[in-house]
Lab assay of single mutants.
Amino acid sequence: KAKLLVLLYAFVATDADTICIGYHANNSTDTVDTILEKNVAVTHSVNLLEDSHNGKLCKLKGIAPLQLGKCNITGWLLGNPECDSLLPARSWSYIVETPNSENGACYPGDLIDYEELREQLSSVSSLERFEIFPKESSWPNHTFNGVTVSCSHRGKSSFYRNLLWLTKKGDSYPKLTNSYVNNKGKEVLVLWGVHHPSSSDEQQSLYSNGNAYVSVASSNYNRRFTPEIAARPKVRDQHGRMNYYWTLLEPGDTIIFEATGNLIAPWYAFALSRGFESGIITSNASMHECNTKCQTPQGAINSNLPFQNIHPVTIGECPKYVRSTKLRMVTGLRNIPSIQYRGLFGAIAGFIEGGWTGMIDGWYGYHHQNEQGSGYAADQKSTQNAINGITNKVNSVIEKMNTQFTAVGKEFNNLEKRMENLNKKVDDGFLDIWTYNAELLVLLENERTLDFHDLNVKNLYEKVKSQLKNNAKEIGNGCFEFYHKCDNECMESVRNGTYDYPKYSEESKLNR
């Protein structure tokens, strides 16, 4: 008799109507990190870190770059004969040098303040090359056809396309004075040089004057150069050297050249137009028929994500570079809930034993079982409120962090190594801060989002509990077992918050 009662009780308990509160689960393989956990499985997430590029040089917003090819900045601007293909260059979106560009200054020497000139050019998007001192009329008392084997072109001695090597005419090199007034309405880049012979005999042979000088002056520039005559090792078949100089001439300003020898005179100059998204990159990537809004030396990035880990040097509207390998923000729920887990921000989770793959029309909802059958029903209101809140948060985070910009490298010469090392340390410090901030932001927001979901499920549970009161009992896994019969209409009233407690209280009292 006792065995019969136990079996009867078990049958009745199993047959009781139930309603459970749960949440969506799926077959997603997404994982995120939080402050407290690593690799948390979630139903949905968004990636904030771009880690792919196309490996190509592309047009930037429809404008092609200027590819210097086998030449570098120095060779292009001075007019190395091997860089003749660059003479027609007028406009570009950015400038590309190759790491091993070999054609710079063909006659050995240095372009002074080269690093600063590169910085200036990094904001130039177009130029006009014009004859600042016409070759045939500007130097009537001097020979202007100086050439050298060091600047050979097609097997013949030649010289820079933008400079003139002035030497004596006959047996004399009379003092020369020439000036140019900038009437271009924009900055003009003027380049010139000073020749330093290897011996007094060479000085006399070329310029006749043993104590020659070169003077260059404008409103913002004033220097006097004296040739340094000295024996030097042979470089590119030359014992002599040429140093090259430049200045930016403001609109309306005048530049005056005065010399008694050794002047490498300007022939062509450049009127410059600035462009905020221009820059110089060093890259071996090849040019393709493609378009982008962000270019790196590795390749083009076409992404609206706020961060990238491809390269710190970028041109155009680019994500911020960070050292992170993963920045994924959760938008959905835990896919593998932890039992009795309390989140960092106070939300209680884990009283549900598992997510439901059968509930596909919402994030949170119900599963019921009664004599009429069983089924899932999503709670659309709480789901939609959660979707709206999380979507707004993700968009806000992306908008705040998605300050796209150009980031170019800084140039230092060989004598500025300590400054370069200090600059690298400062840049590394800023990069570490950006990386830390980005990672911390994602970790915190992921923790908040998961706790937010847990709290929403808990609130749904409490909503049902407050309606049923003692007409049902909690069975410990997020479910309630009714003390009365609850048909589909009754189940719907529980879900929509209109459950009639008094209607079922007498039946429940008897069954309790």
Rank of each mutant, 00 (worst) to 15 (best):
residue 16 A to H: 11
residue 24 H to Y: 12
residue 219 S to C: 05
residue 277 E to S: 12
residue 179 S to Q: 13
residue 217 A to S: 11
residue 137 S to A: 08
residue 222 N to L: 13
residue 181 V to H: 09
residue 75 G to S: 08
residue 50 E to P: 00
residue 219 S to P: 08
residue 12 V to F: 11
residue 78 L to G: 01
residue 196 H to L: 05
residue 183 N to L: 13
residue 26 N to M: 03
residue 65 P to L: 02
residue 173 Y to I: 07
residue 16 A to V: 09
residue 262 N to M: 03
residue 263 L to A: 03
residue 151 C to Y: 14
residue 124 V to W: 07
residue 109 G to C: 11
residue 44 H to E: 09
residue 247 T to N: 04
residue 58 C to A: 04
residue 247 T to Q: 05
residue 34 T to G: 05
residue 272 L to C: 13
residue 168 K to P: 00
residue 181 V to K: 08
residue 207 Y to R: 02
residue 183 N to A: 07
residue 92 W to L: 11
residue 22 G to E: 04
residue 84 D to K: 00
residue 178 N to A: 14
residue 245 Y to N: 00
residue 94 Y to H: 08
residue 98 T to G: 10
residue 25 A to N: 12
residue 225 F to W: 12
residue 258 E to M: 08
residue 44 H to D: 11
residue 172 S to H: 05
residue 252 G to W: 13
residue 210 G to F: 08
residue 191 L to N: 00
residue 174 P to E: 13
residue 95 I to L: 14
residue 162 N to D: 06
residue 262 N to Y: 02
residue 87 L to Y: 04
residue 213 Y to I: 08
residue 180 Y to G: 00
residue 9 Y to R: 08
residue 188 V to Q: 03
residue 194 V to R: 00
residue 262 N to E: 12
residue 209 N to F: 09
residue 212 A to Y: 02
residue 174 P to M: 14
residue 217 A to T: 11
residue 229 I to L: 14
residue 256 I to E: 10
residue 18 T to R: 12
residue 182 N to M: 05
residue 234 K to R: 14
residue 92 W to P: 04
residue 24 H to Q: 11
residue 103 N to L: 11
residue 248 L to P: 00
residue 207 Y to D: 08
residue 201 D to V: 12
residue 229 I to S: 08
residue 268 Y to R: 06
residue 57 L to Y: 12
residue 276 F to G: 10
residue 172 S to V: 15
residue 244 Y to V: 03
residue 5 L to Q: 14
residue 182 N to L: 00
residue 120 Q to P: 00
residue 181 V to F: 10
residue 242 M to Y: 05
residue 110 D to M: 11
residue 25 A to Y: 15
residue 223 R to I: 08
residue 74 T to Y: 07
residue 85 S to L: 12
residue 31 T to I: 01
residue 106 C to Q: 02
residue 114 Y to W: 03
residue 209 N to Q: 10
residue 216 V to M: 12
residue 195 H to E: 03
residue 195 H to S: 02
residue 188 V to R: 03
residue 22 G to N: 05
residue 179 S to A: 13
residue 95 I to K: 02
residue 158 S to F: 03
residue 95 I to W: 10
residue 174 P to D: 13
residue 57 L to R: 12
residue 94 Y to G: 08
residue 112 I to G: 01
residue 104 G to P: 07
residue 278 S to T: 11
residue 36 L to T: 15
residue 207 Y to V: 02
residue 146 G to Y: 07
residue 222 N to Y: 15
residue 250 E to D: 10
residue 71 C to A: 08
residue 7 L to T: 12
residue 172 S to W: 13
residue 107 Y to M: 10
residue 19 I to K: 15
residue 197 P to M: 10
residue 158 S to W: 01
residue 19 I to T: 00
residue 36 L to P: 03
residue 262 N to L: 00
residue 254 T to L: 05
residue 204 Q to D: 15
residue 72 N to G: 13
residue 126 S to R: 13
residue 189 L to F: 10
residue 149 V to L: 12
residue 279 G to K: 04
residue 193 G to Q: 08
residue 191 L to T: 06
residue 107 Y to S: 05
residue 132 I to E: 04
residue 109 G to M: 12
residue 116 E to P: 07
residue 282 T to I: 12
residue 137 S to C: 00
residue 185 G to Y: 01
residue 170 G to Q: 15
residue 79 G to H: 03
residue 69 G to K: 12
residue 166 L to C: 08
residue 170 G to T: 12
residue 96 V to Y: 05
residue 168 K to W: 01
residue 151 C to M: 05
residue 3 K to G: 11
residue 245 Y to V: 01
residue 246 W to C: 06
residue 165 W to T: 07
residue 178 N to D: 06
residue 166 L to D: 01
residue 35 I to N: 06
residue 180 Y to Q: 02
residue 231 A to Q: 09
residue 150 S to F: 06
residue 58 C to T: 03
residue 271 A to S: 15
residue 183 N to I: 08
residue 257 F to V: 13
residue 209 N to I: 15
residue 34 T to C: 02
residue 98 T to E: 14
residue 260 T to I: 04
residue 281 I to P: 00
residue 43 T to A: 06
residue 213 Y to P: 04
residue 44 H to S: 15
residue 198 S to D: 07
residue 225 F to L: 11
residue 237 D to T: 15
residue 40 V to K: 08
residue 139 W to M: 11
residue 157 S to F: 03
residue 10 A to R: 06
residue 54 N to Y: 01
residue 228 E to C: 10
residue 50 E to D: 12
residue 119 E to L: 03
residue 185 G to P: 04
residue 35 I to F: 12
residue 37 E to H: 10
residue 190 V to D: 00
residue 238 Q to F: 04
residue 100 N to D: 15
residue 35 I to P: 10
residue 221 Y to Q: 02
residue 199 S to V: 08
residue 152 S to D: 08
residue 159 F to I: 04
residue 103 N to T: 06
residue 103 N to E: 15
residue 270 F to Y: 09
residue 137 S to E: 13
residue 16 A to E: 04
residue 107 Y to Q: 02
residue 102 E to W: 03
residue 214 V to G: 01
residue 15 D to T: 09
residue 34 T to N: 11
residue 30 D to G: 07
residue 129 R to W: 06
residue 41 A to Q: 05
residue 227 P to N: 14
residue 64 A to R: 12
residue 282 T to V: 15
residue 143 T to R: 01
residue 252 G to T: 13
residue 32 V to C: 05
residue 202 E to M: 10
residue 205 S to M: 13
residue 212 A to S: 15
residue 277 E to W: 04
residue 147 V to H: 11
residue 128 E to D: 14
residue 36 L to C: 13
residue 279 G to A: 15
residue 165 W to N: 04
residue 106 C to G: 01
residue 257 F to A: 00
residue 266 P to D: 05
residue 234 K to W: 01
residue 26 N to H: 09
residue 61 K to E: 13
residue 192 W to P: 02
residue 254 T to Y: 09
residue 30 D to K: 12
residue 132 I to P: 02
residue 24 H to R: 00
residue 157 S to L: 15
residue 223 R to D: 03
residue 131 E to R: 05
residue 194 V to F: 12
residue 48 L to R: 07
residue 1 K to N: 12
residue 194 V to D: 05
residue 121 L to V: 11
residue 39 N to W: 07
residue 103 N to K: 11
residue 146 G to E: 10
residue 115 E to Y: 11
residue 192 W to D: 01
residue 164 L to Q: 04
residue 148 T to L: 00
residue 103 N to H: 15
residue 233 P to Y: 05
residue 192 W to E: 05
residue 21 I to H: 07
residue 242 M to F: 14
residue 23 Y to F: 13
residue 53 H to R: 12
residue 22 G to H: 07
residue 223 R to N: 13
residue 266 P to A: 03
residue 215 S to C: 03
residue 162 N to Q: 07
residue 150 S to R: 04
residue 181 V to T: 15
residue 132 I to N: 11
residue 144 F to N: 12
residue 202 E to L: 08
residue 15 D to L: 12
residue 143 T to K: 15
residue 246 W to D: 07
residue 78 L to Y: 09
residue 120 Q to R: 14
residue 74 T to R: 09
residue 257 F to E: 02
residue 240 G to R: 05
residue 197 P to K: 05
residue 241 R to P: 00
residue 151 C to P: 06
residue 156 K to R: 10
residue 170 G to C: 02
residue 162 N to P: 03
residue 107 Y to K: 05
residue 134 P to K: 15
residue 161 R to G: 06
residue 279 G to P: 09
residue 232 R to F: 09
residue 166 L to R: 01
residue 149 V to S: 15
residue 252 G to S: 12
residue 103 N to M: 07
residue 115 E to C: 06
residue 169 K to A: 13
residue 280 I to T: 05
residue 242 M to K: 04
residue 220 N to V: 05
residue 226 T to I: 15
residue 227 P to A: 15
residue 99 P to D: 07
residue 250 E to A: 14
residue 86 L to M: 12
residue 126 S to D: 14
residue 63 I to R: 15
residue 206 L to V: 08
residue 140 P to V: 10
residue 273 S to T: 13
residue 145 N to P: 08
residue 252 G to A: 09
residue 76 W to G: 07
residue 244 Y to K: 07
residue 70 K to G: 15
residue 242 M to H: 02
residue 174 P to H: 11
residue 201 D to H: 11
residue 168 K to N: 06
residue 51 D to K: 07
residue 174 P to L: 10
residue 102 E to Y: 10
residue 120 Q to T: 12
residue 204 Q to C: 01
residue 222 N to Q: 06
residue 101 S to E: 06
residue 251 P to A: 15
residue 203 Q to G: 00
residue 83 C to G: 01
residue 74 T to L: 14
residue 125 S to T: 14
residue 139 W to L: 07
residue 54 N to P: 03
residue 147 V to W: 00
residue 62 G to D: 13
residue 10 A to Q: 04
residue 62 G to V: 02
residue 120 Q to F: 07
residue 111 L to C: 03
residue 27 N to S: 07
residue 144 F to P: 01
residue 168 K to V: 14
residue 198 S to Y: 00
residue 107 Y to R: 05
residue 80 N to P: 00
residue 201 D to R: 02
residue 200 S to H: 15
residue 270 F to V: 02
residue 93 S to K: 01
residue 26 N to L: 04
residue 252 G to F: 08
residue 29 T to C: 00
residue 269 A to T: 02
residue 223 R to V: 09
residue 227 P to F: 03
residue 237 D to C: 01
residue 70 K to H: 01
residue 120 Q to E: 05
residue 88 P to H: 11
residue 129 R to H: 09
residue 48 L to E: 10
residue 143 T to G: 15
residue 195 H to C: 03
residue 105 A to E: 14
residue 197 P to W: 11
residue 211 N to E: 15
residue 38 K to D: 02
residue 91 S to V: 07
residue 13 A to R: 04
residue 100 N to G: 14
residue 218 S to F: 06
residue 26 N to Y: 05
residue 232 R to I: 08
residue 221 Y to F: 15
residue 103 N to P: 00
residue 192 W to T: 01
residue 168 K to M: 10
residue 68 L to S: 10
residue 207 Y to F: 06
residue 108 P to M: 04
residue 219 S to L: 12
residue 221 Y to D: 05
residue 136 E to D: 14
residue 138 S to T: 15
residue 187 E to H: 08
residue 26 N to E: 02
residue 185 G to C: 01
residue 238 Q to C: 03
residue 102 E to A: 10
residue 167 T to S: 13
